[in-house]
Amino acid sequence: MFEIRIHSRGGQGGVTAAKLIAQAAFRDGKHATAFPFYGAERRGAPVVSFVRISDAPIKVYSQVREPDMVIVLDASVMDSIDVLAGLKEGGDVLINAPEPPVLGSHPVHAVDLTGIALAQKLVVAGSPILNTPVLGALAKLGLVSMESAIAAIAETFSDPRNVEVAKAAYAEVQA
């Protein structure tokens, strides 16, 4: 079983990102669950969501404590949240940033999701859309197939720019 924790801020689409990843994994023929941790949600507050991907049916409902991978959609949450908490040794970090910060000994993959969204003017209610480009980055890292990532995006959002930003992120991120 592969477990992912996503850090974002309320309103940035972290919950939808988790759903899209599960949807793509499911299209790849895997079992997947996606769920947010529900707290006192408010726009801008740090939030976490989880994804589990497995070849077997998933019976675990408790939160992910020792993720295999951490995704940070908003680097500023790192000022108040230890995003590496429980991350397995050697576990990857995918971060929305132009340059990769040094995070212990973990492999860090940086991709400027915000810049990619802004280049396509993909902005909703003042927030650049991060959850569709991140799927492209994850496909590059081999978590889901790009075909399934695009299909998951296309069946969720009608605006074709969502697929374009995923392709841009796929091209930009270093595996």
């Binding site: 988790a18 759903k19 599960a22 949807q23 499911f26 079992h31 997947a32 669950t33 996606a34 769920f35 947010p36 529900y38 998933i58 409902y61």
Partner: peptide, 12 residues
């Protein structure tokens, strides 16, 4: 069904 644990989890 369990609140959030099932109501808001995404599965097949």
């Amino acid at each position: 069904q369990d609140g959030f644990l099932l109501s808001h989890i995404t599965q097949s």
